[in-house]
Design a protein around this nucleic acid. Structure first.
Length: 783
DNA sequence: TAACACTTGTTTTTT
DNA sequence: ACAAGTGTTA
């Protein structure tokens, strides 16, 4: 594409933002104003202006956003150029840099990335070791304090000296936080492990302590772009500044209205004060919304008038006026789901829409249940995003722990996880002794079991022997690692360690789906192996790289674009809906104590963030935006009663229809729903007091069980792959034409082995010749 | 050490 | 309601 043509596809303000390359710039992009378009076009424009793809660093909030943007740029400038862009999340890009520069900061390149669960588990152990009251010190709470400190680049030593923090900890009766933090950090380093926040903090320290390294990267990244800047934290801001201080070749894009990650340390001030940080920063505002109808945009604007802290802007739409927002109050969570399902069917018929045009957005993941249940009942296909991700399932975490220990034997959390899984008779007593010896000598658990006598491990002969068997097992895996590929090793691990035996002998109903999940995991691993082989990057830290991808991957990122994924209703939290758009959006559970969350209702600042969250939700909608609330809701095992959300009153009443519970549309003049709802004498309460809680409860739990068994939620892919295998593997012969999920069309050249272990050599049209294990390969037979 | 019953808190969002 | 954690027994 020509430069001229490229620019002609943008409106005036978009074009101005794209063309400005002289210094720092801040693009305030209202919802639906073509923010991604500006970013992608700007990168394409840079490439036309003589920048090379590897000169450009583009940081996004999710892996998915990075992937999408990369493919969009690919279609503008060609995929072969786009693939060399440095594009990814802060966390993944910096993890890569840290691996390369690990030696400078006292780590090995094969460091582990601790996830939230690992961090909490470690903190829990520390709390116990320090003999602190675990009623007062909750691992999650402690970790969030540590995390906040890290996001502000406050190191343990700084923390101990920070009077404000210390006095705050004393107020919450947790004076030992500082000590826990110090220990935690030490233990992470001893284990050669970093938590999510360390990926930022240590990058910052790396650049601060090693000017030559900083210089190298500052020169290397000739242009830096940051997406979703409103969700960056202080540490991220500082790193960007480190890379751009001599040469402010940086463009940040964001929308303060959509800053919704304050709880995670994101600082809305970053965007509000960008111009103070970069003296001559240019400000561009994108205010035309191309996504939504006028009514939706106006309603969203009216809501935001209630917030104080913001960059004033005037988002407008020239689309059709559209219909007003509609509030549909329900008696119960169950009826709320019924109302939504009914509306989906109604709008589908009226608009000739597909299921994928609909999204149901909620504040908390737990709200998905009633909808799942109702949609199953009504045969409406749906897909749930978020929640327990594939990689957080027990069986997956177990196999990953094996790999982690192989890649980094000092990884204590992995060690603890698998030392007795599958059961090998090494219990807590023994583990405690190992821990004690490890502390005493300042070595890792692994070191202790490698030379137990040397570290004075006081256990009986039998236990000693069991430990040595485990050591030998892991050692044998480590020795195999460089020789066989990771996928083969994975197969060996599950077989030799006894995981297979454990799972296959289990008679629990979930055992089958666990088997499938393991297969799915190994198959994903094979894809990764093959992908790497193509790129000729099969180096020693290969395994660490794979584990890193897995650790930084959220469920949202695993793109399931299978045919049947195409037409499903999406269910997700508002947070995960950021950046997406749907023709029809249902925002459900608009009640006090849910939305705003009771955790946030105490401070004005947090309340404003909740309001922005509703703004984000509303602006996901293109044509229809339907709000619901329920009078009664089944929560914490009992029925709860809540009034409609205060935010409903923040929306201009002229833009909000309120439907009566009877299903008749009241005129929009009726804004008295709040009062009506809080009254206890109304005719509705009598209906509700005919106590059906028990019934409700029974149906709920019953169908939930069915649901679990039939659909291993969100991993539809695993069901697909296993069914394909069983039907296809037998029919395959030399000469068959297959379509592989990853490699495309290919012809079978050779078949080796029998039954489940058949290996096929396939020559692919576009991907060359590959060997596939039929058991795991994802393909279908075409001819 | 492992299996079981009983108690407890949990529900805000996620890289 | 549920999962995770605790304590009791074999």
């Amino acid at each position: 594409m020509e430069e001229k043509e490229l620019l002609s596809q943008l409106n005036d303000s978009q074009r101005a933002a794209v063309e400005y390359l002289d210094g720092a710039s801040l693009v305030i992009a209202g919802a639906g104003s073509g923010k991604t378009r500006v970013l992608t076009y700007k990168i394409a424009y840079l490439l036309m202006k003589g920048y090379e793809p590897w000169d450009i660093l583009a940081l996004t909030f999710t892996n998915k956003a990075a992937k999408e943007m990369q493919s969009r740029i690919g279609s503008l400038v060609g995929a072969d150029r786009a693939r060399y862009l440095n594009m990814g999340t802060f966390h993944s890009i910096f993890a890569r840099i840290l691996r390369r520069e690990a030696a400078h900061i006292g780590y090995n390149p094969n460091f582990t990335i601790y996830d939230e669960a690992d961090s909490r588990s470690l903190i829990k152990t520390i709390i116990k070791e320090l003999q602190l009251d675990d009623k007062i010190y909750k691992p999650a709470g402690v970790h969030s304090k540590i995390s906040m400190a890290k996001n502000h680049l406050i190191m343990p030593a700084d923390y101990a000296l920070d009077r404000e923090l210390i006095s705050r900890d004393i107020d919450t009766r947790q004076p030992a936080i500082s000590q826990i933090y110090t220990t935690y950090q030490q233990r992470c380093q001893n284990a050669n492990a970093m938590d999510f926040d360390d990926l930022l903090v240590l990058t910052y320290i790396l650049f601060r302590e090693h000017e030559d390294v900083r210089r190298k990267y500052a020169d290397h990244f000739r242009f830096i772009l940051v997406d979703e800047y409103q969700d960056t934290n202080y540490a991220q801001q500082c790193i960007i500044l480190q890379l751009t201080k001599e040469n402010p070749h940086v463009c940040v894009v964001g929308d303060d209205y959509q800053s919704i990650y304050g709880f995670r340390g994101a600082n809305i001030d970053n965007i509000l004060k960008f111009s103070k940080l970069y003296a001559n920063a240019q400000l561009f505002k994108l205010e035309q919304n191309y996504r939504s109808t006028q009514h939706i945009v106006s309603a969203a604007n009216s809501l935001m008038k209630k917030n104080e802290r913001q960059i004033p802007k005037d988002v407008f739409s020239t689309n059709a006026e559209g219909e007003k927002l509609t509030l549909k109050p329900a008696y119960s969570d169950k009826e709320e789901a019924m109302i939504v399902c009914k509306d989906i069917k109604r709008i589908m018929a009226a608009d000739h829409a597909q299921y994928c045009d609909f999204a149901i957005l909620y504040r908390t993941n737990s709200q998905s249940r009633s909808f799942e249940e109702e949609m199953r009942k009504q045969d409406i296909p749906y897909r749930i995003f978020g929640g327990l991700s594939f990689y957080q399932r027990k069986e997956i975490k177990d196999i990953i722990a094996y790999f982690r220990l192989i890649a980094n034997p000092n990884d204590e959390e992995a060690f603890k996880r698998i030392i007795n899984y599958p059961s090998r008779g090494i219990g807590n007593t023994t583990l405690a002794k190992i821990a004690e010896a490890a502390r005493k000598y300042g070595v890792s658990f692994w070191d202790v079991i490698c030379s137990p006598t040397h570290f004075g491990l006081n256990v009986n002969k039998g236990t000693l022997n069991k430990l040595d068997v485990f050591r030998a097992l892991i050692t044998s895996f480590m020795e195999k690692m460089p020789k066989v590929d990771a996928f083969e090793l994975g197969q060996e691990i599950i077989k030799v360690s006894g995981i297979t035996a454990d799972i296959y002998s289990s008679r629990e109903p979930e055992a089958l789906s666990r088997q499938e999940n393991l297969e799915e995991f190994l198959s994903g691993m094979q894809d990764f192996v093959e992908g790497r082989r193509e790129e000729g990057r099969e180096d020693e830290i290969f395994l660490s790289d794979f584990l890193q991808d897995v650790a930084l991957m959220s469920d949202l990122d695993s793109d399931s674009n299978g045919e049947d994924e195409q037409s499903r209703v999406s269910l997700m939290t508002i947070h995960s809906a950021k950046g997406l758009e749907f023709s029809t959006v249902f925002i459900v559970g608009l009640e006090e104590n849910i939305f705003p969350s009771p955790m946030a209702a105490s401070s004005a600042r947090e309340l404003e963030e909740e309001r922005r969250l509703l703004y984000v939700a509303i602006t996901r909608a293109e044509k229809h935006c339907i709000l619901t609330c329920a009078r009664n809701r089944w929560r914490y095992g009992k029925m709860e009663y809540d009034t409609p959300s205060r935010f409903l009153r923040d929306i201009d009443p002229a833009l909000l229809n309120v439907e009566s519970e009877r299903g008749r549309m009241d005129s929009s003049v009726d804004t008295d729903y709040t009062a009506r709802y809080s009254g206890h004498t109304s005719r509705y309460s009598s209906i509700y007091n005919q106590s059906k809680p028990k019934e409700v409860h029974l149906t709920q739990s019953h169908s939930n069980q069915n649901l679990r068994r039939v659909v291993p939620s969100s991993s539809a892919a695993s069901t697909v792959s296993s069914s394909m295998v069983s039907t296809n593997a037998g029919n395959l012969s030399v000469g068959s034409i297959i379509e592989h999920q990853r490699f495309g069309i290919g012809v079978v050249q050779k078949l080796e082995g029998t039954g489940e272990n058949t290996k096929a050599t396939v020559e692919f049209k576009n991907a060359g010749t590959k060997q596939l294990l039929l058991k795991f390969a994802r393909f279908s037979i075409v001819g």
